[in-house]
Every structure is written in structure tokens, then in C-alpha cells.
Amino acid sequence: MEPSETVADVLEMQSVVMQFGGVTAVDELSLHVGKGEIIALIGPNGAGKTTAFNCITGIYQPTSGAVLFEGRNLRGLSPDVITRLGIARTFQNIRLFNNLSVFDNVLIAMHLRAKDNVFSATLRLNRKEEARMRAETELLLREQDLFGLKDEIASSLPYGLQRRLEIARALATRPSLLLLDEPAAGMNPQETQELTDFIVRIRDQYHLTIFMIEHHMDLVMQISERIYVLNFGKMIAHGTPEDIQNNPEVIEAYLGVTEDA
């Protein structure tokens, strides 16, 4: 790829292939996400979207191809290292630390920047670090309007708040790239609209780049700068929301069979 005059790419996937036995879940997927963009990855169920996310975050190692983050090849890196580099994610089926408090959920994610070790932590010689992490957690929870719930057990929160908490926890790792896996799943139109505004807001507030998988077309069409469409692991279309809405292949594969959206 020749150096473009536009914004630098935060994320680039180069012909990524992911095979499980004989099944090719992701087939020659190439895409790029520029700094500060909101990009959507859409496609019917089973199209390989989450698999693509798992290839980025190191849960899977791609069979072939490369994933570059800020120009660095992520091959062979484990998920925790990739998070430390600045990619945070949420999960399709919310994965909170269910039996821990809202506060602890976020506090745990603060630890990756802590300078302490098990001895200093046990003997409480890391008071300064601990106080800093707690202060940062409090600030983040206040910014996200979750502070009033800080002592609640994560699993006791209503669904929408669990989603918000999961995003807050991801933000606590101070990512530059945030991957959202179906953030609006299970939300009603009003909640979806709130989430749409929320995504734009956190992008601006935390200077994020956002790459998301989403089924709610309202949300996708409203805020995405560009959209990639996957079907059976292959990219079948790529472009602005208008391009995608008018692309006959996409309409056939996806939009045409969408129930309501």
C-alpha cells in the first residue's frame, strides 16, 4: 500500500485467512481503519465478523495474512499484550466479572498500567499506585454516569447498563482503538439511539478509533464513516453508507433479508 496523504491507518488487515479444519471462517479479508474513524463491519449471522475480531485481538492466530496495528504486526502476540498495545474490545455476549462490583470491574482494567509487584501489593507498599488507580476509576465511572452504581454487583445491573459498564471497562485500558462487538444487541430503538450518540461522544472525548460489528442498520448508517460487508467470510462490499445501501449484492445478501432494522 502506498503511503496515503490522508490519516494514518490505525488498523490494517492484509489478506487475513482463518480456517478451522476444513471451514474457512474468514477468507482473504483486507481492510483498513484510519485514525479517528468509526468503521462498521456488517454481514449476516455466521459471516465471520466476530472471528475477524478474534484475529485482531489475538484470541485466534490467523492461518495466513497479517494484522497490523499502528504499523506493527500482531502475529504471535497474546490478547493481553495486544490490549497493552492499545486495542480494547467488548464482547458479543457480555463478559463482565459477574460477581464483582462495578467499581472492581473497572479497577481491574486499570491494573495494566500499574507499576507494582506482588510483594509491594501484598504488603501495601503500593499505596500511591492503588490510590491513583482508584481515583482514575472513580473519574471514569463519573464520566460514564456509573458512579452511583459503583457498589452494585455487575451481574445485577440491567442489560443496557451492563453493556455500558463493559465499554467503560474497555476504556479503562486507555485504548487507541476500540472494537465493539454488537454493542446494540438486544436494545430497543430508544436505547439504540442513546448508544449511537454515546459512541460518537466517547470517540471525541477519548480520541478513539472505533471499529464495530453491528446489526442495527439505523446505528450503522448514522455514524459509520465507512462500512465493510462480510458474507461467508468474504468481503463483498466496502464503501460509505450510501454506497452500501445502494449496492445490489449487499441488498441481496443482507439488507434484503433483514427483518426490520
Binding site: 485481538t57 490478547p79 493481553d80 490490549t83 474490545r89 463478559r95 472492581d104 481491574i108 491494573h111 495494566l112
Partner: peptide, 19 residues
């Protein structure tokens, strides 16, 4: 807290930067 995070959900713990 990191131990508990692993107990609760290994995949999420790893995604939060825990080795």
C-alpha cells in the same frame, strides 16, 4: 483482584491486559 478476574472470566481477564 486479578486472581478474581481470572476466576470470573478468563477471556475477559486476558482482554483487560492480564497475563
Amino acid at each position: 483482584r486479578m486472581f478474581k478476574a481470572i476466576r470470573e472470566d478468563e477471556i475477559a481477564a486476558e482482554a483487560m491486559g492480564i497475563n
